[in-house]
Amino acid sequence: MDAVKTVDLTKKYKDLTAVNALNLTVRQGELLSLLGVNGAGKTTTIKMLTGLTRPTSGDAFLNGKSILTESGAVKVMIAVSPQETAVAPNLTVRENLELMAGVHGFPKSEAKDRAAALSDCFSLGEIADTRAGKLSGGWQRRLSIAMALISDPQILFLDEPTLGLDVLARSDLWDMIRNLKGKMTVILTTHYMEEAEALSDRVAIMKSGRLLLTGTPEEIRSRAGTDKFDEAFVRIVKEGQP
């Protein structure tokens, strides 16, 4: 079974078609990067898949569950790390982790155990009692991803996970994301081509709400006839007919 399968997924806002009959599949355990210039429809796609926006038509199935008719079951299996910092600023690192475990329905003791385990895993132990609002951007992003993982999601959505981070923080996060590969299905959006190339099993390129193509980074380069991934992306988007 595919982890994600969209069937003619469409979202219209008055005269604008943000996502147009999208048919995309993501395999279980795969890391797929969703690429596209601004307005391509990446964020709207993620919003529909995570239940934040209702599609105008079409449907999507996450591990076989419809986002339209089984949204409750979908919400249990997914987690999202949004683009902007999405932490509770006056709560400590530990409390943020326990909060996310709590809203997923884990009992207090299990929430504490999970928070402790993830703190170790993400090297958050030393700052466990620091308020999240006082952390640097890199540490907040690290915490944000840890918060997404506390429920052991089957499908993880990472929206621009390294946006605005310095090189070292980005490198650290890349390592963390690599460690997730194979353990869960990851859908990542990014504007950094090198990030998509380094992390992805497959890449999907969108333009004006439509899917232009999907393939491995090698396939994308080969299709565009260049060795450089960013050049390949530009060629495909420029030549691609929406």
Binding site: G51, L52, I78, V80, P82, A86, V103, H104
Partner: peptide, 17 residues
């Protein structure tokens, strides 16, 4: 204003919660 509430909207919390 932050993405915090959006993040929580993707969890099993209901409107009543």
């Amino acid at each position: 204003g932050s993405s915090f509430l959006q993040r929580l909207y993707t969890t099993p919390l209901t409107a009543g919660d």
